[in-house]
Design a protein around this nucleic acid. Structure first.
Ligand SMILES: [Mn+2]
Ligand SMILES: [Mn+2]
Ligand SMILES: [Mn+2]
Ligand SMILES: [Mn+2]
Lengths: 221, 221
DNA sequence: ATTATTTTTTAGGTTTGTCTAAATTTTAAA
DNA sequence: TTTAAAATTTAGACAAACCTAAAAAATAAT
């Protein structure tokens, strides 16, 4: 099966909305793809005719098993290119997405598998999102917001949800990056700010920042 | 200016035909792009309206200065990706072209300039074709077919024009690759085969093979 | 339970890039 | 120099992916 760039963009967008909100509406999809609801309906008919979507007019739609499988491969391509752009070409976090949005449509499976190998089979993209493997499978990692991390629990920064330049600047200044190991010492009741310990250094970050940082940990450690 | 994938493919194809044959015909272009002459004429009108082409109906067409400039940037992207695929992802010579045909349409100038830097500003693609620099300029190297190389003149293999698997196999067996330094010792009148010396080894190759290998040399050396 | 609002779909058009078949123009042959 | 052949362009259609405006269905508000 080969899909157009448009079909691929729709499949991926539906996948992401499904993941985030559980459900997808015509308007939400139109919004996400910067297009009009009428165009979305057109495409839903097309994708549904190709059995990539379960679709009942006025009832809504969701990816079929086949549709989800394809979406996962597009996500794989997107995230591997993001990793390449960030790791090898030294682009900033906030620059890689737009470029990957184009590169993801070069669909040779062999190309992507070789790229994966060349990059050393990375597990996460520069935003900390998991990269599906060559079978399209996403490894399940239990991640938790830094704000919800239990006290004195050593954890590792996995993902940063907000990717603005402003946030990047702040993280850089605080010396927090993906892979950083840290623990939460306490919460301040007044403004809910969070006290962290990184190695031997103690510092405080805002609630807002803490809620945008996701970490992973083994409850034993 | 931003161009569609189709427009880019046409511009590049016209550029190549111009280089090779000096002139381009509607039929030749249709042949090269696997499309129909009528479709070519349609596109010629479009590109000519965009001032990328000098076009007089029935008289023929050629790239304008602007059109040539754009074509050179597409060629740059194509060849840099080919180099990447070959050098970093270890694809064979004959596999890289098809993949680069898609990658070349990701048109971010910044991406390509960073890729160029990452690759160490390569001068030639895996087929020995020159890579235009970030200004779109092709460095002029005087190259000559191995068949036409003067006797006893040390030269370096630059380019292989036929890129079939069969030829690759033969070259590999003869230990000839891009960068190989060699000289021609004599031509045999019977079948026009060519005797070469590579380091201390002497070997013979066919006229057909010699005519597909291009070399460069400094007449002094 | 009506009425009003929002969401979604349909109807009818546009642009891009393609096609086939027919008409033109140029080039080659008789 | 007519006639035949080849090359090129035009005419008219079609699919993909959009759009706007109007209709239909589902939801929310009185
Ligand atoms: Mn995309
Ligand atoms: Mn990402
Ligand atoms: Mn191409
Ligand atoms: Mn090449």
């Amino acid at each position: 099966m080969n899909f157009t760039i448009s079909e691929e963009n729709y499949l991926k967008a539906i996948f992401h909305l499904q993941e985030k909100d559980g459900t997808v509406t015509t308007n939400a999809l139109a919004e996400k793809l910067q297009t009009k609801p009428a165009s979305v309906t057109d495409m839903m008919k097309k994708l549904s005719a190709k059995k990539l979507l379960n679709y009942k007019p006025y009832y809504g739609f969701s990816l079929s098993a086949e549709g989800k499988k394809i979406a996962l491969f597009i996500v794989r391509r997107h995230r591997l290119w993001e990793y390449f752009l960030s790791e090898k070409l030294k682009f900033d976090w906030n620059e890689v997405h737009a470029l990957a949005e184009e590169l993801e449509h070069v669909s040779s499976k062999q190309l992507i598998d070789r790229l994966d190998q060349y990059l050393g089979f990375p597990q996460f993209d520069p935003h900390g999102d998991p990269i599906p493997d060559h079978k399209g499978k996403i490894k399940n990692v239990n991640k938790i917001s830094l704000f919800d991390l239990p006290f004195n629990q050593m954890a590792e920064v996995l993902q940063v949800t907000n990717q603005s330049t402003e946030m990047l600047e702040l993280l850089e200044h605080k010396n927090i990056t993906i892979g950083t190991r840290l623990e939460v010492k306490k919460h301040f009741d007044f403004d809910h700010s969070v006290e962290l310990k990184i190695k031997t250094t103690t510092l405080t970050i805002s609630e807002q920042l803490a809620k945008n940082i996701f970490v992973t940990y083994e409850p034993g450690a």
